[in-house]
């Protein structure tokens, strides 16, 4: 088509554009549909109280999922986030008496460093991120047990983390505000710098990215660092609610976090997706978790519905035109 006898350049099909725009909103549509369905099932669901409760529960999950989304965008996966968050709750609870207000940044920093170590192991030793973080998950869990003495560590003076458990304007939980700010920060940082190109290129086609001189290794390690830091922040949120740290406190958040990422429509194979999508995904997952019992779904059926809705949601939100191979 590139001869001097010009054949008209293919016109961007209007239909395809519409569809792309629509799939961009799919996570939000799925979220709205879910709220609508829950409201129809139980009109009392749509009250400020239950929505606030749901949002508060969602905050740590949003942060965890947002961080891990970066790793997924780079084509990897971070399975250690929940174990790292658990360990971080223990560290935080142990350090608050000595460090006071500095305990929070210290925990987030340590979590980020642990993320960097895993990222470096993945990149330098050329081990799949799945394996590195699977090992990391196990090691971090064990360390949490040892450090905590296999028990809950109470936080007696919670004044330094209590602020996260307050409400902005009386309605919006502070932790949710922080979670949204974190998502926005990551999104803006990607958008206004070359990072977006680098992350997408690395996720879509690592060899092409490398041969274009993209700092693939640094980008990946950076993604793991953010993922780790987010796990640390999620831990702070958990401690602020529970007034304690525990060696398995966040462990049950791993699969919901992965579900949040894919429900948001981020391709698990890398390249395509965004942290905003994971925010919507985290809300969907949380609403399912807290919403189904509220509207009176028997607990035996809850799991079935949960599983089915997750699969359907992914079918809706994943833009298949952007992802060539579905594994």
């Amino acid at each position: 088509m590139s001869t001097s006898v010009a054949i008209k350049p293919p016109v961007e099909p209007a239909v395809g554009k519409e569809r792309t725009r629509l799939t961009g909103f799919m996570p939000l549509i799925a979220l709205a549909a879910l709220i609508a369905a829950l409201t129809i099932a139980d009109p009392d669901f749509l009250t400020q109280r239950s929505l606030t409760a749901a949002a508060r529960t969602a905050a740590p999950l949003i942060v965890l999922a947002a961080g891990a989304t970066l790793v997924v965008l780079c084509g990897g996966i971070d399975l250690s986030i929940a174990a790292l968050a658990s360990l971080s709750t223990v560290f935080l609870a142990l350090w608050i008496p000595d460090l006071g207000g500095l305990a929070t940044p210290a925990v987030i920093l340590v979590a980020a460093v642990i993320g960097v170590l895993q990222g470096a192991a993945h990149v330098l030793l050329r081990i799949p991120s799945f394996i590195v973080t699977l090992g990391g998950m196990s090691i971090l869990s064990a360390v949490a047990l040892v450090v905590s003495g296999a028990g809950t560590v109470r936080v007696v003076d919670d004044s330094t983390v209590k602020w996260l458990d307050l409400y902005v304007g009386g309605y919006v939980p502070m932790s949710v505000m922080v979670a949204v700010i974190v998502v926005a920060l990551i999104a803006v940082l990607l958008k206004v710098t070359p990072l977006q190109s680098w992350v997408s290129a690395t996720g879509y086609s690592e060899s092409a990215a490398r041969l274009a001189g993209t700092p693939v290794d640094l980008v990946k390690i950076g993604a793991f660092a953010v993922s780790g830091a987010c796990a640390g922040l999620a831990a702070v949120m958990l401690v602020s609610r529970q007034f304690s740290g525990g060696p398995t406190m966040a462990d049950n958040l791993l699969l919901p976090a992965v579900a949040a990422i894919v429900v948001g429509g981020t391709a698990i194979t890398g390249g395509h997706g965004s942290v905003w999508r994971s925010l919507a995904g985290a809300l969907v997952v949380t609403l399912l978790r807290v919403g189904l019992p509220i509207v009176g779904v028997p607990s035996a059926y809850e799991q079935i519905l949960y599983g089915a809705i997750i699969v359907v949601a992914v079918a809706l939100t994943l833009d298949k035109s952007k992802v060539s191979i579905i594994k």
Binding site: S197, S200, A201, Y204, S205, S207, A208, A209, L211, G271, H272, K322, S324
Partner: peptide, 9 residues
């Protein structure tokens, strides 16, 4: 197609 360009970008 594999190394030269990132097709979806």
């Amino acid at each position: 197609k594999v190394e030269g360009m990132v097709g979806s970008m």
